[in-house]
Amino acid sequence: MLRYIVVRIAFGAVLLAVVCTFGFLLVFSGTERVALNILGQSASEADIAALNAKLGIDRPLLVQYQDWVGDAVRGDLGNAWTTTGTVTEILGRRLPVTLSIVVTAAFINALVSALLGITAAVRGGIADRLIQIVSVVGFSIPNFWLGLLLVVVFSLTLGWLPATGHVPITTSTLGWAVSVTLPVTALVLSGIASVSQQVRGAMIDALGQDWVRTLRARGVPEGSICYRHALRNALPAALTVLSVQFVALLGGAAVVEQIFAIPGLGELTVRSAIAGDVPVLMGVIVAMIIVVITVNTLIDLINAWANPKVRLT
């Protein structure tokens, strides 16, 4: 197991280096007009050259990359170009907001999908068909459309929940829960379909195995067979889909945060892209890939715990 953990961590480190390299080449290779965008169209050539020199983007791209890597390994992602503060400080304020929404949505997605998938596999019949219909409908509704619909119904019409804004959980737990209810709902409904269907298929396969019939013949309670034995065998397949869904939730959060005016990474990405704040965009890439690698590594470890055969791959 220890060897498996070391291999997973090493693989994550290599993936982080590769993605950061390609991300740097992508965002820093298009900085020709950054100074002009910051200074305005009336800026002189001398002012543009002076700002390029100040930002360090007049140097060869390889030199910029070497300097960035040297600072990044020490935890310094540079300074923002269009606002005050360092990139690390900005990410420190924005990342917890996005993670609080995405992690909550992923947890609810996993819980609801497991319940729906197990119910569909065990009961079958009308319950199975109804759950599949509801899942497909939820999957077919775009996040942004669902978010707007939730705002119209629950904020503008009923007045039950706030349409915009975010309350930090450190300020008020109840206020935070109220402020993230609609964004989390918009993210969860579209992700339930794929995970619940994967749980359903895996549970049907597990419940059809010979060892399940043996357990029933020995008088093991059906609940124990379903939740203690079959669910553990179905867990790896469900977790694999859930890890993909987590990445999708991060992408969906960028749209949802715009709709609900939430000061997270999604809103920061859009604003920085428009303003041409390249260091902040690079910082977002680093933060996102670290989160994705961490989540995928944890899911791989859970899979290895649930299914020892995974450790051999």
Rank of each mutant, 00 (worst) to 15 (best):
F28G: 00
G251Q: 12
V270M: 12
G165R: 11
I169D: 07
R216N: 14
I259T: 04
G147V: 10
V255W: 11
P142I: 07
A80N: 05
C20I: 10
V284P: 02
I274E: 13
A43E: 09
T185W: 04
V241Q: 12
T269H: 09
R218N: 11
G56I: 04
V292P: 00
A230Y: 08
A261S: 11
Y65E: 13
F22R: 05
L36H: 11
V87Q: 09
G125S: 14
D205G: 08
T171I: 12
L174A: 12
V241C: 04
A121V: 03
I204R: 15
L268T: 15
V69T: 03
F107D: 03
I299T: 10
L235E: 10
L99F: 06
R8A: 01
S155A: 15
V103A: 14
N109T: 15
A72N: 07
T88Q: 14
P308T: 00
S29I: 10
L242K: 11
V97N: 02
S243R: 08
G252C: 09
T82D: 11
L298Q: 07
N37H: 13
V167N: 06
L231G: 06
I274G: 05
T84S: 14
E45R: 14
W81A: 01
S272K: 00
L116T: 11
W68N: 08
G223C: 01
T313V: 12
L215W: 14
L231A: 15
R33C: 06
S172P: 02
T82Q: 02
V180P: 01
P279L: 07
I126A: 14
T82W: 03
V291S: 02
G201S: 15
D67C: 09
V188F: 00
I192Q: 01
L77Q: 02
F107G: 13
V278E: 10
W160C: 04
A72Y: 03
V195K: 04
T157V: 08
L2S: 13
P60C: 03
F28S: 03
A234I: 09
V137T: 12
L298C: 12
L250D: 00
A163C: 05
G251E: 13
S140V: 05
V278D: 08
G56Q: 07
T185N: 07
D210C: 05
A10K: 06
T21Q: 01
L116C: 13
L242H: 13
R228F: 06
T214V: 13
P183R: 03
L242V: 09
I302D: 03
S172N: 10
N109K: 09
A202T: 06
R218Q: 14
S243V: 06
A234G: 13
G125D: 12
